[in-house]
Amino acid sequence: MTNALKLGLAGMLCASAAMAGEIKPKDVSFSDGAIEQSLTGAPGDPEKGAMIVGDKSMGNCVACHQVSALADVPFQGEVGPPLDGAGDRWTEAELRGLVANAKMTFEGTVMPAFYKVDGFIRPGDAYTGKAPSGPIEPILSAQDVEDVVAFLMTLKEE
């Protein structure tokens, strides 16, 4: 076996181990709104997180929040508070909880839950307006949430 192949196999094993260790939306445990444990066990990628925060088809966080660090993303909303300095105001565990289900921190908040699959009223099949054809997927995957949290942790006031 070549070294390259060995490395490749090791990588695959790591990936599947991470998948197996993933915390499913229904198994997430909150403490005072925060989620202490990483949803994947793998560190988040802040660059991917930045992409998810700004992308309309992903997190689309900027629809409601302003993020100065993403100044090139147009049309930032003002329904929620600006995210500048979020990494100072919150711990990683608190941010994970806010992204997964902010209602566990702020009762009645307008903010949607991005890692939740049940308890909805008339949930649809994404944005089709139709009834779902199968089980509901969370809006963001476990790794997406970790990536977003990693990005938010970089938002420090200077």
């Binding site: 309309k56 689309n60 900027v62 629809a63 409601c64 147009p74 049309f75 930032q76 909303g77 003002e78 329904v79 307008v110 949607p112 839950a113 909805f120 009223i121 008339r122 949930p123 649809g124 509901i136 809006i139």
Partner: peptide, 23 residues
């Protein structure tokens, strides 16, 4: 509060009128 985003008419048009949501 309908749907997976759990939004009511009031969430946007009563609590947030005047605010920008994306464009």
């Amino acid at each position: 509060r309908y749907g997976q985003l759990e939004l009511s008419c009031a969430n946007c048009h009563e609590e947030n009128y005047g605010n920008m949501i994306r464009a």
